[in-house]
């Protein structure tokens, strides 16, 4: 490699650096502001045991408008949707709810619940979910703040693609305090109430997965 070629390479790198540097005013990479507080939606119970019931695949939930992502939705008056400042979920809402349902139903029933990563397992039923609401609803004062969780479920038998049942479970819980911790605790309480009702419905339905 000659000296002339090396000079050309150095010149090209320098020119590229200058070009990227010139784009600085156009592109902002953000500042070093305060980090978001991250919260989990965690099932407050045990883990699934050695269940022997039918295998049920928990499909990835679909979510309503404004609930996608990790931000915590806030429902204001006039159908206005914003997110809570400085607070986010540990994962997208769909993943959190899917894991919660899989664990809760697997722990409290005899069904073998498979979620993410269970696509290659032959299943008797598919459990679908549509998250209609998972939002913080501020009231006139802090005492009136609430959180609202509404999930539509659908149990489909794989053998004949028959829809066995399709209920919607909705719960509203009053926030017991101020600040983001109280709000996120309320979300966990609401999800616990939803899962309790979900379990009683699932207990009466999942046996039909093996029929047909």
């Amino acid at each position: 490699m000659s000296q002339e070629n090396k000079f050309q390479q150095v010149l090209a790198v320098a020119g590229l650096s200058l070009l990227v540097g010139a784009c600085g005013p156009l592109i902002s990479f953000g500042d070093d502001g305060p980090a978001d507080t991250v919260y989990a939606l965690r099932y407050d119970g045990g883990y699934p045991g050695t269940n022997s019931g039918p295998v049920v695949f928990v499909d990835e939930p679909t979510v309503a408008e404004g609930l996608k992502g990790e931000k915590v939705a806030v429902a204001l008056d006039g159908n206005q949707l914003v997110t809570i400042d400085g607070v986010r979920w540990a994962a997208p809402v769909a993943d959190l709810v899917r894991n919660y349902i899989t664990r809760a139903l697997g722990h409290q029933t005899d069904a073998q619940m498979v979620g993410d990563g269970g696509l290659d397992i032959k299943s008797a039923c598919r459990l679908g979910a549509k998250i209609w609401a998972m939002e913080f609803v501020p009231g006139a004062s802090a005492r009136d703040d609430k959180v609202r969780v509404s999930i539509e479920l659908s149990l489909v038998r794989m053998k004949d693609s028959m829809l066995l049942s399709k209920p919607t479970v909705a719960k509203t819980v009053t926030v017991g305090g101020k600040g983001d911790r109280a709000v996120m605790d309320a979300f966990n309480m609401a999800m616990s109430d939803v899962s309790a009702e979900m379990v009683s419905w699932f207990q009466a339905s999942y046996r039909s997965c093996a029929e047909g």
């Binding site: 206005q80 607070v87 802090a142």
Partner: peptide, 15 residues
């Protein structure tokens, strides 16, 4: 970097 949308401040209870 995401849209420029409002956020709700729990302390001030304002957007």
């Amino acid at each position: 970097f995401g849209p420029n949308e409002g956020t709700y401040d729990l302390e001030s209870r304002k957007v």
